[in-house]
């Protein structure tokens, strides 16, 4: 994570963000942009599109930061929601594209070669313990904003199975992280 800027605690960061402080934006961007970019890229698959969306998302984060309520959850969760909603909006508008991408990407049997771009780190090791199917489910549902119904349809699985597996995938992952 960000080594360039001194560590701020979350309430200090929020206070500075609300004052539209430039340093605070640097901190936010340096710490979170790569994680958000990875998420968006996975969802929309096209680099140019993901970059446009990342811009849109950071502008939204900046404009709406006053609405973030730390008592309701973590900052990243809030930003991820914005990222997810922005990506969903994009995908819904470009419905044809979503179909093409789906068949190419979200086929469970297909090998997961998507993680090549990742920096080598401990997290990656941990995540690799998760079954490819579970990774796909987490990406689709928690990142991509797929409803259970949509995921069931795309993966050709019964709805009940998707529901159970989506939940257990996250619990398994948590176990691997040792949280």
């Amino acid at each position: 994570m960000g080594l360039k800027t001194p560590k701020l605690n979350e309430s200090e960061l929020l206070e500075l963000l609300r004052r539209q402080d430039r340093k605070a934006f640097n901190y936010l961007y340096d710490n979170y942009s790569d994680a958000l970019y990875g998420v968006i890229l996975k969802v929309v698959r096209i680099e140019e599109t993901a970059q446009d969306l990342l811009q849109e998302i950071f502008v939204k984060i900046w404009k709406n930061i006053a609405q973030y309520d730390s008592s309701k959850g973590r900052l990243f969760t809030w930003m991820l929601n914005i990222a997810r909603n922005t990506s969903i909006d994009y995908l819904r508008v470009n419905r044809l594209e979503i179909q093409d991408i789906d068949t190419a990407v979200y086929t469970v049997e297909q090998g997961q070669s998507i993680y090549e771009e990742i920096n080598n780190n401990e997290l990656k090791e941990v995540v690799s313990q998760l079954k490819p199917e579970q990774q796909t489910l987490i990406e689709m549902v928690y990142w991509g904003g797929y409803t259970h119904e949509e995921a069931a349809q795309r993966l050709d699985m019964p709805l009940g199975t998707v529901k159970t597996r989506v939940r257990s995938a996250l619990r398994d992952l948590r176990k691997f992280f040792g949280a």
């Binding site: 994680a35 990875g38 998420v39 991820l80 920096n119 990656k124 987490i138 949280a179």
Partner: peptide, 8 residues
């Protein structure tokens, strides 16, 4: 953490 593990 899952997102950070997949950062690009």
């Amino acid at each position: 953490r899952f997102a950070f593990a997949n950062k690009v």
